[in-house]
Design a protein around this nucleic acid. Structure first.
Lengths: 144, 144
DNA sequence: CCAATTCCGACTGTATCTGTCTGAATTGTA
DNA sequence: TACAATTCAGACAGATACAGTCGGAATTGG
């Protein structure tokens, strides 16, 4: 019941992009340095985000990545679902319908449904823009 | 971001125990049969619950297990934490305090905290007694 | 042409999940 | 007392996911 590094890194990556993208693409090396994450691993993660259309890439020197849309258009839920898959905690509670076969009415499924709803409620109501704002507040409190 | 079979089985196991324990111990074989779970695997799981004091065991013939307290005394959260560990989705958001070292104020941590709170809110407010009740309602709707 | 980038896929070590298997210890009952 | 039904304990193992690493190809601005 943990969120993997892939998901956490993806979030930090996009947050970084949201903060530092001023119109020009931002290259991975810089992000990796700022976030202290292996560049090679980030590469893997951002390629996923690229294919999903979350970011856009520019190749060649001075190339890099940029967000495809405004930060407020990205919810944490979208990002985590891309990297983690469905956030509902067990498969048989997903929209695919349960095939567990037990005829007991599968009382546990209710627990998983409630849990899934609570999780989605949180992650679908936080956007990258919120996180950018939080970060700015932090920086005001703790100026370097 | 999934709950493992261990956690799900533990829940079903205890629910079964709550439903079928009439004062006499219930043996694993019966539970395994009803729940269609490998007896050997259940053994492993219930041993954990036994050590944690959730159930009590009686050895020898006619032996088995019984709940140590009333079903209303067990929350889903207690059970899942025993089998899954902390339910907060990443370690640095736990009460142990973050040691991630990044000085950015760790904005992502806020996300994990909110998520953790939402999860706990759900699982700590469902008890085994609730689940027993749900199951009885199901049985009224779908009599065999 | 060169160097900075992204892009792609193979590889690897570690851990976790999901059990299985063997056998010992306990104890009610015949 | 002997037997059989149980729990108890721990080693073993196959599959999968996690968390990267590595090498190199493709693209393109200067």
């Amino acid at each position: 019941m943990k969120i993997s590094t892939k998901g956490r890194y993806a979030l930090r990556l996009l947050l970084d992009l949201a903060v530092y993208s001023t119109g020009d693409p931002v290259c991975l090396k810089d992000i990796a340095k700022r976030q202290q994450i292996s560049e090679k691993y980030l590469e893997q993660i951002i390629s996923l985000l690229n294919k999903a259309g979350v970011v856009r890439s520019v190749r060649g020197p001075q190339g890099g990545y940029m967000l495809n849309r405004a930060p407020s258009e990205y919810t944490v839920g979208m990002i985590l679902r891309l990297t983690e898959g469905e956030l509902v905690p067990v498969s048989c509670a997903g929209q695919s319908g349960g095939e567990c076969g037990r005829r007991e009415g599968c009382v546990s499924a209710r627990v998983w449904e409630q849990l899934g709803e609570a999780i989605n409620q949180v992650v679908d109501n936080i956007t990258l823009a919120d996180m950018v704002k939080w970060q700015q507040e932090e920086e005001e409190k703790n100026p370097d």
